[in-house]
């Protein structure tokens, strides 16, 4: 989807965060890959819910996303707390 110019703060923050994760887990590509999978799962659930117009409850809540990422980033407190800045209702 096209990126919108009127949201540069969130976009720049997301770029720098993704870069940070990539660098941190350079030697552990599976961790980075799992993180991407969690994000995509979340996005898919959100999309399903949106398309169903309220008649579908996402199977993955923000709390569950946070818990999964916490498991993944267990010794990386800074990455986890920064992730919390992205999550709605974290």
């Amino acid at each position: 989807p096209p990126l919108q110019n009127n949201q540069p703060v969130e976009f720049n923050h997301a770029i720098s965060y993704v870069n940070k994760i990539k660098n941190r887990f350079q030697g552990q590509p599976n961790i980075y890959k799992s993180f991407l999978e969690i994000l995509h799962k979340y996005q898919k659930e959100q999309r399903n819910a949106k398309e169903a117009g309220g008649s579908y409850t996402p199977a993955l809540t923000e709390q569950e996303v946070y818990a999964e990422v916490a498991q993944l980033f267990k010794n990386q407190e800074d990455l986890l707390s920064e992730f919390g800045q992205f999550l709605p209702d974290a």
Binding site: E10, F35, L87
Partner: peptide, 27 residues
């Protein structure tokens, strides 16, 4: 570095839309 793969770009997209949603719900 900014050598992003399409997968990275989609992660950026998800994260920034999450942050937008968060901001919208706070304001």
């Amino acid at each position: 570095s900014y050598d992003f793969t399409p997968l990275d770009s989609s992660a950026v997209y998800v994260l920034s839309s999450m942050a937008r949603q968060r901001r919208a719900s706070q304001s």
